[in-house]
Design a protein around this nucleic acid. Sequence first.
DNA 1: TTCGAAAAGCTAACGGTTAGTGCTACGGTC
DNA 2: GACCGTAGCACTAACCGTTAGCTTTTCGAA
Lengths: 195, 195
Amino acid sequence: MTEPPGRRERKKAATRQKIADTALRLFLERGYDAVGIREVAAEADVAVTTLFSHFASKEALVFEQDEDFEQRLARAVTGRAPHEPLIPALRREVHALVRHCTADGAAPIWRMIDESPALRRYDESMRLRHAETLAAAIAADLELSRTATVGRTIARFVVDAYALAREAADPEAAVDEIFPMIEAAWEAGRSRVRA
Amino acid sequence: MTEPPGRRERKKAATRQKIADTALRLFLERGYDAVGIREVAAEADVAVTTLFSHFASKEALVFEQDEDFEQRLARAVTGRAPHEPLIPALRREVHALVRHCTADGAAPIWRMIDESPALRRYDESMRLRHAETLAAAIAADLELSRTATVGRTIARFVVDAYALAREAADPEAAVDEIFPMIEAAWEAGRSRVRA
DNA sequence: TTCGAAAAGCTAACGGTTAGTGCTACGGTC
DNA sequence: GACCGTAGCACTAACCGTTAGCTTTTCGAA
């Protein structure tokens, strides 16, 4: 992953990184909406089309690093210890995610996101994608006593917990307040066929 | 509300309606993404700027009618019978909303929405707004035994139930499957200060 | 009738995004 | 070491949603 797989790919990665760094710097300096794509491209010394060959949209420039976030919730399910219950594993992972987002360095970025409607909507869409990925992981893990709908529902609830906690005054405490509710929902989701 | 309050406002309403009707017809005929704003304006025989003085965005043309939706969930809380428990009241309202969305006439519109990323994202944003409105209504109704975080969480869960049900094969059954989970979460949300 | 203001219009532009078309430099192959 | 296919990048020119600036039309009220 860190080895040099050829000059070409190194250059490509360097270009991508330079674009992302330049963009984030300009955005933080002068505001997301006040900086145009043409300006980012000029400052990074690439063509606009090159920029869009590396990033699908202007918003994607901001969320560059969070690609693995998509998989972390799913891995918390599929990679947990055998016989470990589902919800506590998810709770641990959400705790970690929240801690990561509220770390010192991340604060200005999240403030910027909160201030821009476009970025907020992009973030919302991302979370829905995350919920779907998580739902798939849960479905693959489901015992017979629960339906697919229950799995999808829990996936949404977990992603909600993450979003709500991030907005809360005390994010970690919020996670601890919400997860018992999710646990209860999960218990109630046992099919009542013969319970 | 249905009386004629003057020619001016009648004409304005007529213009608005004509724009919305024309847009929806064109969108359904040839696809949302394949029809441009300039085309809708031309077909409705208005200027583009006029169109945007009636609707805030292209997406808003599609969701024209659902403005009162925003308030329905909140009213289900504030306007319920005295001493009626919260969750069953919300359950009834979500049932009604789902039934409304899966009615015969609405099917092609929702198919169109599902096919366009822009419309999906707009819908997601709308739902978040609805969750916040509902959260405010719940907060105003909260007994001392539950915190504001619990209220916000339940609001999200309820809106999730609506979204999940709409995507389910049997929407009404999905509501009935999800709401017991919400009920359990609500119970678990009692503060454990002295329970 | 006259006047103020809301509604509608026109033009022109801005900002994100995408074709279309090359050029150049790299990487695998002989 | 020369060769060729292709990936990466550049440039131009446009499309599309959206907005600003300003003029014209159309009501409602005085």
